[in-house]
Design a binder for these strands. Structure first.
Lengths: 285, 285
DNA sequence: CTTAGTCTGTTTGTCGGACAAATGACGAGC
DNA sequence: GCTCGTCATTTGTCCGACAAACAGACTAAG
């Protein structure tokens, strides 16, 4: 605890031009704890799914207090490398893609993104994804897409919102590429862009039906292994989306509005405690 | 403290069919602390850049102990919504894109991605990004690109590796779109794919020079506002990249090897402490 | 008057220990 | 055999303490 900083104090003759003085790297112990465990996981000594040692044991092994260990564990937890199962225990895990997407989405929604920027991104991605999907799709994803189409048809008939199903359809296409990179690349933008549908629907007759038809065409091509067709239909679908947006009277150059405020509930759902503290201190300053 | 869990214990007469029993959402207090602060930031009561209250004050206001507060702060920290500046204090911040990218990249590298999948993703993205960049680029990014090209030329002359500069060039193009979504979408994949260059270089004569020429062509088109040209040159560049990969004798269907093990240093660099504890407990089991 | 040192109150990092509640394993009882 | 208490383990939370780092204010030196 006495890393006395006696670095560049010496003679005042010249400002050492050659000396580099790369910034000293240091970190509080809780961060070292985090990295120690992270490393165990990344280098395979702790395999995905393995239960982490007890807090007490970790503390003991790392030579720090349990509180410090716990702070490190929080970092690990939030980084996605540790995950709670069955309520309490922590298990080593891979950061989940949807988790990453969600965060990216939030970051995006807080930054400046225009409808047009997002749209052009997806116009580049989605057709290519559809083409690749046509080459690689498996039976399982086909089934999932069929189910999605069925539910979309229902929703359209019933006049319900199709936004969620729309998002799911496109996500499934991305999944069909079999490559996590595709999903990761498109998800945040799609989640921000496609809900714009919600605002168009009331203004455009038949937009639900059009969407369904488009999805069906895309699906048929994908299932048939017709990459080119899938790409073409998807591109039309995306173009159509933009057209609808403009027709409905929106300005594609405007920033997209952050959809969905941060909800409260969504915790890791464990039975037990309901509130942190029923009500003890109000807040006095 | 005493949220005694007396949920569904009652009479065993009938299994309430009508009752819904939506899963009880509960969370430990440290998580509630996290969400409380998160919410303050997301809803604008704490603005980006604002200094967070003292740990003690937070603890007091939220009615929990400082230790608990600190655990919540670790979550916040790792989520990117709080950031240390000047060493200690925590400030509200936006999750940084490069941070998100880095995590996404790690997640990708741990999952199954093939050269081909990544390549096709970037083949869809990069040309479109270049086209958009040509419409929107500003003087600053032009300057950055020029600097990048100059350094690339140097590196090629000197026979040094151009991988980092290559990555930077493409990232700058994405930046030039002015839309964070583009950078976020391509960064993780690019970071995994482009370093493959490193392996090709020794096997292919002139590949550095080819890369430089391609970058120059792309840049010229972008600067001239020639979207179509930029797109075309970029597509060629990406195609060329794949051709080189195959020529060099690699199989595009193989999974990409995780590049770069998790390094040690990269902390938040704060002067002061060098080690958590110089050497107090060795580890006895 | 600027520069360098000194002092002081505040804030963070870490530690020690304590205890209630939840969990999981296990053996007793219907 | 299945259900129900019992008990040890583990997590969540709290209390309190103290050293180190830091931000400022203030003072001595050039």
């Amino acid at each position: 605890m006495d890393g006395t900083a006696e670095a560049g104090a010496g003679d005042a003759a010249r400002e050492g031009a050659a000396a580099v003085f790369s910034a000293i790297e240091a970190a509080p112990a809780y961060r070292l704890v985090f990295h120690a465990i992270e490393r165990e996981i990344l280098e395979g000594r702790l395999r995905i799914g393995d239960r982490l040692p007890t807090e007490t044991e970790l503390a003991h092994r790392l030579g720090v207090h349990r509180s410090t260990t716990r702070e490190g564990l929080r970092l690990l937890e939030q980084s996605g490398l540790a995950e709670r199962r069955e309520g309490r225990r922590l298990y080593a895990s891979l950061p989940r893609t949807d988790d990453l997407s969600e965060r990216a989405q939030r970051a995006l929604s807080l930054s400046r993104v225009s409808f047009d920027g997002l749209w052009r991104l997806l116009r580049a991605l989605e057709p290519a994804a559809a083409a690749l999907a046509a080459e690689r799709i498996d039976a399982e994803t086909i089934a999932a897409l069929e189910a999605n189409l069925a539910r979309t048809a229902e929703a359209v008939d019933a006049g319900r919102s199709v936004t969620q199903l729309d998002l799911e359809f496109h996500a499934l296409i991305a999944d069909a590429t079999g490559d996590a990179a595709w999903r990761l690349a498109r998800e945040p933008s799609a989640a921000l862009l496609f809900p714009a549908n919600e605002r168009m629907l009331p203004r455009l007759a038949q937009s639900g039906a059009r969407l369904l038809t488009a999805h069906r065409n895309i699906f048929d091509a994908v299932r048939a292994g017709d990459g080119e067709g899938a790409e073409r239909w998807m591109r039309r679908h995306i173009d159509d989306f933009r057209r609808g947006y403009v027709l409905a009277g929106f300005d594609p150059d405007e920033p997209v509005s952050p959809v969905g405020a941060p909800e409260n509930g969504n915790e890791t759902r464990r039975p037990g405690r309901i509130e942190a503290r029923p009500g003890e201190q109000g807040g006095d300053g």
